[in-house]
Amino acid sequence: MGKILLKSLQALFMGAFLTLAFASWNTALGQATVTTDKDDYAPGEYVIITGTGWEPGERVDFTFVETPKPESCVNSHDNFATADASGNIYYDGFLIKINHLGVHFVLTATGQVSGRVAVTEFTDANVKFSTTGLPPNVNVTVSYSGFSPPSPGSAISSSVTFSTGGGGNGASGNIALIGNLNFQFPNTITVLTTVYTLVSTSPTSPATIPATGTFGIEATYIVGKGASTISVNAVGPFTYNSNPQGPDAVTKSGSTGSVTFSYVGVSPTTYAASATKPTNAGSYQVTATLASDANYNGAVSAPLAFSIGKAASVTTVTITGAPFTYTGSSQTPAIVSVTGAGGLSLTPAPLYVNNTN
């Protein structure tokens, strides 16, 4: 029994010894690590640096190499951390700034006692495109144009393709851009026989990129045709001029189909519904209809009321033969004419009063 217990203790001791020896062997081989909490950062975010496998208590120096090196970045970002009793390091003092946009960083960590070296990389970008409503593992290509950093920036026109991933709500990697941004998601995406239609983006294009933080742009898709909207723009006032007239401009979204109008009189004005604008003075309303296209359903606007006012007329009295001499008889030298819009031209008979004495 004593021999069995002794052998068990020996085996336990040997296992512990081998574990410690293996750990020491790993340390001796210099298997130190350094990593950052993200692969990409936006301006205003701090880089969190951690690592393992360093000599306990040693100083670990950080050296940052920037490509391209911003001209406005004159101060070194190099710094250090001290390994704790377990050989772990932690540093959170590196703030990403706006002038870092578009920069690729290579971080080299060097132990000042152990001589161990570890390297990692990260980037600084700020614009990210994403989708919702699409099935998993669908490739989405977004075209965009804007300006590359640093300010004032150079014009850039490009595109990015990303997958919706396993959950169906994928996102692109960050892109370094500044200023105004124009972008376009696909209007439709066909997966097998199902058509997904773009119904909105948040924010809409064009957009202004903020100076700090990640700028996310999300596109929403639905199955089938998207919804359209249309409204008739209020214009006027209208005055009778003998020509057909009325509102004929719209604000619409969605379908690129044709737009038709229907004009109808409103009591007491009598005018049957017609695609032709009314001519006569009166009260009316107009409705616009937007036809569907391959991607969007059609839409009908709410009725818009409008009126055509009466035109002014001009009455002219012309007296000929003046001056006049008393004759004892009535004198009728007047000629009356009435003119107005629409070719109005009348010559009514004048009415005389006291035209004898």
Results as ranks from 00 to 15, higher is better:
residue 34 V to Q: 10
residue 192 L to V: 14
residue 62 F to V: 04
residue 219 A to D: 04
residue 112 Q to G: 04
residue 311 A to T: 12
residue 31 Q to I: 02
residue 127 V to P: 12
residue 321 G to Y: 04
residue 341 A to L: 05
residue 280 N to C: 10
residue 328 G to P: 02
residue 351 L to A: 12
residue 284 Y to E: 06
residue 34 V to G: 11
residue 2 G to L: 10
residue 228 S to E: 11
residue 6 L to F: 01
residue 92 D to Q: 09
residue 77 H to P: 03
residue 230 I to K: 04
residue 310 K to T: 15
residue 216 G to A: 15
residue 196 Y to P: 10
residue 72 S to Y: 04
residue 201 T to L: 11
residue 323 P to Y: 03
residue 241 N to C: 15
residue 218 E to L: 09
residue 46 Y to K: 05
residue 141 T to L: 04
residue 284 Y to S: 09
residue 103 V to S: 02
residue 70 P to E: 01
residue 126 N to F: 08
residue 343 G to A: 03
residue 315 T to M: 12
residue 331 Q to Y: 09
residue 226 G to Y: 08
residue 48 I to R: 01
residue 183 F to C: 13
residue 73 C to K: 03
residue 226 G to I: 01
residue 100 H to N: 02
residue 69 K to D: 05
residue 43 P to A: 06
residue 107 L to N: 01
residue 270 T to F: 02
residue 196 Y to N: 05
residue 119 V to C: 08
residue 51 G to P: 01
residue 218 E to I: 13
residue 73 C to H: 14
residue 128 K to W: 07
residue 321 G to F: 03
residue 239 T to S: 03
residue 11 A to H: 03
residue 252 K to H: 08
residue 162 F to Q: 03
residue 258 S to Y: 07
residue 158 S to R: 08
residue 157 S to V: 06
residue 64 F to P: 12
residue 316 T to R: 14
residue 276 T to V: 15
residue 247 P to D: 02
residue 94 F to A: 02
residue 264 V to W: 00
residue 152 P to D: 07
residue 158 S to P: 04
residue 159 S to I: 14
residue 254 G to M: 06
residue 153 G to N: 15
residue 197 T to C: 10
residue 253 S to P: 13
residue 171 A to I: 06
residue 266 V to H: 10
residue 289 T to L: 13
residue 70 P to W: 05
residue 305 A to G: 11
residue 112 Q to L: 10
residue 95 L to C: 02
residue 313 S to W: 06
residue 192 L to H: 05
residue 114 S to W: 13
residue 257 G to E: 13
residue 355 N to P: 01
residue 81 A to N: 11
residue 300 V to L: 10
residue 114 S to C: 04
residue 31 Q to K: 14
residue 78 D to N: 15
residue 104 H to C: 04
residue 192 L to Y: 08
residue 140 V to Q: 11
residue 83 A to I: 11
